[in-house]
Amino acid sequence: MTTFIAGTGLHTYYGSSHTLHGIDFAVRRGETVALMGRNGMGKSTLLKSLLGIVNPRQGKVTMNGADVTGADTHAIIRRGIAYVPEGRGMFHNLTVREHLVMSARPGNDGRRDWTYERILETFPRLAERLGSLGTHLSGGEQQMLAVGRALMTNPDLLILDEATEGLAPLIRREIWHVIRSIKETGIASIIVDKNVNVLLGLADRHVILVKGEVVYDGSDLTPESEILKRHIGV
């Protein structure tokens, strides 16, 4: 498996506060990576550093071997990434249908696996709310729309930051079910989530961050692992 995206030696600051301390993080094609760590450990910041939403002061980001350090976010995204941020990023003045239509594009190899119709089959709840404004949906519906909108770009890598945060158990299960079926289609993903047990079953690899540093990067975690107890607290 070849590396799709990699950050090496990333140091990111917010003003004078040093948030990422030299992180190495990579995702291979088709790989599902769980990014774990307590609140405030730098998970979202790492994702934003890869995407050029915040600019690391040191370090390098490459995609398929090409250096994209310091490139514009839209240009990095265009290389095959779909990003579902914390808070979902709904547009208050666009309908459900418009959220899906505005983001549609073929994948980098011309693939059009994810179409408008397929998104609505995947998320039947959205089909019933096509004319509603994004911000008028329930939390679960917003999350489904955020994922659907991301998939409309036919990405090679899907990034989900706290996608099940604050959702009812039934809706969570629905979202996890979709994430599993996305994994089966061969799309790589980075998943940040509080639900460690699901992540242990789902991800090919697990990365744990503590205070902006990687303390674990591997595939042999079990629910009993000492390192999980110490750094995640389950």
Binding site: I53, D72, T73, M90, F91, M102
Partner: peptide
């Protein structure tokens, strides 16, 4: 049009528009 949707989306949340791969500038 999609162009119109991008414009409206840009008014609502320009960072999210960029995060969808659209050149906001």
């Amino acid at each position: 049009t999609r162009f119109g949707m991008w414009i409206r989306a840009g008014a609502s949340n320009r960072d999210m528009v960029a995060a969808l791969g659209i050149n906001v500038n």
